[in-house]
Amino acid sequence: MAKYMLKKILMLVLTLLAVSFVVFAAFSILPGDPALQKLGTEATPEKLEAMREQMGLNDPFMVRYGKWLLGMLTFDFGKSYSYSMSVTDLIGDKIFINFTMSSLALVIVCAVSIPLGIYTAKRVGGVVDKIFIVINQLFMSVPPFLLGLLLTFVFGLTFRLFTPGGYIDYHDNFIGFVGYLICPAIAIALPKCAMCIRLLKANILEEAKKDYARTAYSRGNSTTSMLYRHILQNAIMPTITFIGMVVADMIASGIIIEQVFGIPGLGRSLLSAISTRDYPVVMAIVMLIAAGIVIISTVTDLIYAWVDPRVRVTGDEE
């Protein structure tokens, strides 16, 4: 297990390095001079040269990359082109917003899809199962932002459970902040819930056909004890991997959902940085999101290994 963990963590570091290189290279080959952009109309050849020197643009590519990389390790993402402040100060506060929103969505996905997946598998072919087949298919097809609009309409405008656009900052009122994020989290989570319910149900039904399930029946197990003692642990494993991928997707769809609910998170900063060509900010946010996603996928791998003795005990994947 220790060896396996080490391997996974090494992979994590390598992947992040590769991502950082790709991102840095992509934004370095761009035409256009950041120094010129920053100086604007005041640019004279001398000032431009001085600014280039000051911004480190005259260094060779690998040196700039190295500086940027080392900076990131100390949470220094450089300076924003558009605002005269460091990127860290600009976006540092916002990470927590996206973290909370994604975590809420993850909790919703687990809390909704695991019980419902089990239930529909138990009553497969029943009325509830049939209803959920239709509901799942429908929810999988609704884009999260449209769902966000619907939720705003129903809960915000009709039932007035929250004020659309009335984001509450966590410094002011933490409970209110979390409360405001519930609807966006639901909008992100529902399509994923639908997928997870379907996947878990399919896995349970598939495991129930396997030989070991028959063995368990031959020992006098009832269907219920069969499900909880034998099948669930096996059926949940592919679901864990899937939930890892789902979290990545939810972080991405969070960018869009922020706009629906007027949340000043990373997504909004990313969009405004893209429109003002504020590349240090864009790069920092892309790296943060990518890091979040890669870390989550490593964590899911480790959880998987912990649940599956075939990986835990021998340390290799099948």
Partner: peptide
């Protein structure tokens, strides 16, 4: 591809647009 796969497609498209 694994590296690109780790980044959701909407984010990839956003990077592309910003470039």
């Amino acid at each position: 591809i694994d590296v690109l796969f780790a980044i959701p497609s909407i984010l990839l498209a956003l990077i592309f647009i910003s470039l």
